[in-house]
Every structure is written in C-alpha cells, then in structure tokens.
C-alpha cells in the first residue's frame, strides 16, 4: 500500500564526493527501494537509503542538492516507501558493482553478507570515495577510466590496456564467478553490456543472481506518469513499480 508520511530532517554533512543527510521517519525504505520527497520543487525527488536503522535513514546526494539546504528539524513529506528493492536471498558471498555517482544505494548492503566485494568505478581518482570509508572486511576494487588509480575501466571494456595498467574486466569476471549474488548500480544504458558479461561468466545465472538498480526520474512513483519506462527484453517496464531493482540478466538484452 502506498502511503504518505512525514520525516524530520536532522542534519546534512559532507562526505566527499557526496553529502549525507539524515531523515527520521517511521517507515524507512529497504535497500534499493525509495521514497519520493517533497522538497519544495515542482516534482518530488527520489531518495534511496544509503544507511538504514529503526528510526530513519541516511541518504547520500550530490553537493548542493535541495536536501542539504533544509534546516534541522524541518518536516519533509515523503511518498512511500516505493518500488522493489534488492533481494539477496541469504547470499553469503555478495558482489557490489557501482559507478561512484550511483554508489550510495548499494551502501546499506556492505554488511548484508559475511563476504562482500565492492567494485567502484569513477572517471578519475578524485571522484572515487575514500577507501577508508568502507568496512575493512569489504574487498574493495577501485576502477578509474583514466587509469589514475586502481584498475583501468570502463567495467565492460575488453580493449587492451596500455602498459603498466590492468583492465578490470578479467577481475570482474572472477568476482562474478565467486559471488552468490551481484548487485549493480550504474547508468541504465550500461546494463545490457554488463548483463552480457554476467551471462558469459555464469551460464544460465539463477533468477536474481545479478540485480540492477535503475536510477532514473520517477516523478509519480506509482506508474501513472510513464516517465520512468525502460526498455527490457520483455518490453517496456515502469522502473518505479516493477523496479527500480531488476533481475539484470533477464531484463537487459
């Protein structure tokens, strides 16, 4: 059942390259699910939790996001929780793969399994989150598109790497073979290629083995506005109600 609820904004603080904002609310969204917040603009904004507890949740947003300009104690009307979140099904080896800009919705999953591997890709070193932000138990792989640190991206590239650099794809394939569940948060137009990598690494992957979070504009959140339609192997789907987390190998061609 879709409902409206009021949240109380507590504080916002920088956690480069994001800003974190804390909202107290009775029913926070699950990882991968979202709420639509009325922040005073003409449309509500989708907020995905980056950390969740019994009293509310924290979101991580770009600097200068309207949430960061709220005064502590301000009431924010929320629609939701909305959408289908991640379905881990008791996986003990969890792989998380994200572009740095899309990473925050995966952060609640960092302690969701006994063994977690995280792959983060950014255009360059300065846009990567600091490694010491992550729990030491997480196996962290950093990827940059310019090779300024870590492996050389992009994730799906099979091009030969220049001397002294190592492409990330072979390592990613190893991690996919290792994992019991893989959750991706990237630009939606990359999921077809990433789904191809998953299908190549795991013959006939089990349902929901690889899950893809689609972060796109979702103005209504209930499937009315048709703005969030995405193309899938089975026709168009609404990201807001049938997602935003989809079975990647079965959804994206």
């Amino acid at each position: 059942m879709v409902k409206q609820q009021d949240a109380v904004f507590r504080q916002a603080y920088p956690t480069p390259p994001y800003w974190a904002a804390r909202l107290d609310v009775a029913t926070p969204p699950a990882p991968g699910a979202f709420v639509l917040a009325d922040l005073g603009g003409p449309l509500r904004e989708a907020l995905f939790p980056a950390a969740i507890d019994a009293d509310g949740f924290t979101v991580m947003l770009p600097p200068r996001h309207p949430v960061t300009r709220l005064l502590p104690g301000a009431t924010v009307n929320l629609l939701g929780p909305l959408g289908q979140g991640f379905r881990l099904g008791g996986a003990t080896r969890l792989l998380l793969v994200a572009e740095a800009a899309c990473l925050p919705p995966l952060l609640p999953l960092l302690d969701a399994a006994p063994a977690v591997a995280l792959v983060v890709e950014a255009p360059t070193r300065a846009q990567l989150p600091s490694p010491d932000r992550f729990p030491p138990t997480v196996e962290l792989t950093l990827v940059t598109r310019d090779g300024s640190t870590g492996y050389l991206g992009p994730l799906e590239s099979q091009e030969p790497a220049p001397a002294n650099l190592q492409r990330v794809l072979p390592h990613l394939v190893e991690l996919i073979a290792w994992a019991e569940c893989a959750c991706f948060a990237c630009a939606p137009d990359r999921y077809a290629a990433l789904a191809g990598i998953v299908r190549a690494a795991r013959i006939q992957p089990a349902p929901d083995f690889a899950q893809a979070l689609v972060q796109t504009a979702m103005p209504c959140g209930v499937g009315a506005c048709e703005v969030c339609r995405i193309s899938t192997r089975a026709g168009e789907k609404h990201a807001c109600i049938e997602g935003p987390v989809f079975d990647m190998a079965r959804t994206f061609a």
Partner: peptide
C-alpha cells in the same frame, strides 16, 4: 531524458507510450 525542471515548472516528454 524525459524530464527537465526549471524553477517552478518542468517539461515532460514521454512519447505517450501505451
């Protein structure tokens, strides 16, 4: 892109999918 916001108003272009 299907939504662009500017101040109090916005433009939507969905293509009228059905």
């Amino acid at each position: 892109q299907r939504i662009a916001i500017h101040g109090e108003h916005f433009v939507a272009h969905t293509g009228l999918p059905n």
